[in-house]
Amino acid sequence: MSAQLEISNLQKRFGGLVAVAGVSFSLAPGEVVGLLGPNGSGKTTVLNMISGALPCDGGTVRVGGADITRLKPHQVAKHGVARTFQLVRPLPTLNVAENVLLSLAFGKHRHWGKEARDRVEEKLEFVGLAGRGQEKVGNLTYIDQKRMEMARALASEPDLLLLDEWLAGLNPSELRIGIELVQHLQGQGMTVLLVEHIMEAVRALCSRCIVMSAGEKIAEGPSAEVLQEPAVIKAYLGDDHA
């Protein structure tokens, strides 16, 4: 089976700083894989290059076999890629349904009128916001803002979902809700690349992990094994714990 996502020798520099140094990995269709590493290791930069938010300085990004390396974000979305961000970015002048509706313009297929409204309500129901489309986004709790952002990403009908610390900042009960939502996506066969620091979520969701440190890939493999590797422990906790 061909890879849903394949990145090869990906590179990014910011002036003299090498943020990503020759990173390569792939995701099979339906996999949920963790992209881990300490702050500043280059994880979000990798997501930004996959989604087209940042140009690559070297390497290639392929999604479903298509080379998307040089495409802009709206073009990448047409290839079935959607993402969330570390900080929720709602459009405050629009209500919940309108925030989700807007993403339909950037997905793989165009939807209009009642079909579009029905699709929005379907996504809101899936994330637990059924019947709340007319609410102002400013009135949503933090977990409900996260739900709305997920609905917005899913409305574009992605084959590959990039979650950038989507579970960050949730309390324990909210975290469980968030994990269950991603597990529902797993059950539907969604391919997910998950940047996350919460190990409870990583262990619950990711059969496999890729770990970065200082812009380089330092480990890859089954989650339980990777999280025990001395190089990974050293990257997170320092030499005294390795």
Rank of each mutant, 00 (worst) to 15 (best):
R62C: 11
H109G: 05
G80N: 06
P158N: 01
G80L: 09
N39G: 09
E157R: 12
V81K: 03
E165N: 12
G113S: 14
L54A: 14
S156F: 01
R152L: 06
E149D: 12
G113P: 06
N39E: 11
P90T: 11
V23I: 11
L129G: 00
M150A: 06
K114I: 09
F126S: 05
V32M: 10
V61Y: 03
L161T: 01
G58S: 06
V46N: 05
H74K: 06
S156T: 11
G59P: 12
G131D: 07
S24F: 08
L35D: 01
F126N: 04
L35H: 04
G65C: 07
R117P: 04
S26D: 15
S41K: 03
E157Y: 06
G64S: 06
A53S: 10
K78E: 13
L163T: 01
P158M: 01
D67E: 12
E31Q: 15
L47Y: 08
H79I: 06
T84E: 09
A97Q: 01
A77W: 04
K123T: 05
T84F: 10
V100E: 00
I50M: 10
K136Q: 15
D67R: 07
N39H: 12
G113R: 14
F106A: 10
F126K: 06
E115L: 09
V46E: 04
G59M: 10
L36T: 03
A82D: 08
G65E: 04
S156A: 15
R83A: 08
Y142W: 12
L47R: 08
G131W: 05
L102I: 07
T69Y: 04
L124I: 07
T93F: 13
G128H: 01
S24L: 10
K136E: 13
V18P: 02
P90C: 13
G131E: 06
L91K: 08
P158H: 01
A82P: 10
T60H: 13
L36K: 05
A21Y: 05
G59N: 08
K78A: 15
R62F: 03
G138I: 08
A155T: 03
N99W: 00
Q86V: 12
G133C: 08
Q145T: 09
D159S: 14
P55S: 14
V18E: 12
A153W: 00
P158C: 02
Q86M: 13
A116L: 08
R62V: 03
P29S: 14
A77E: 04
L163W: 02
G30I: 02
E135V: 03
P92R: 14
L140G: 08
G64C: 05
L36P: 04
K43D: 05
T44D: 08
Q145E: 14
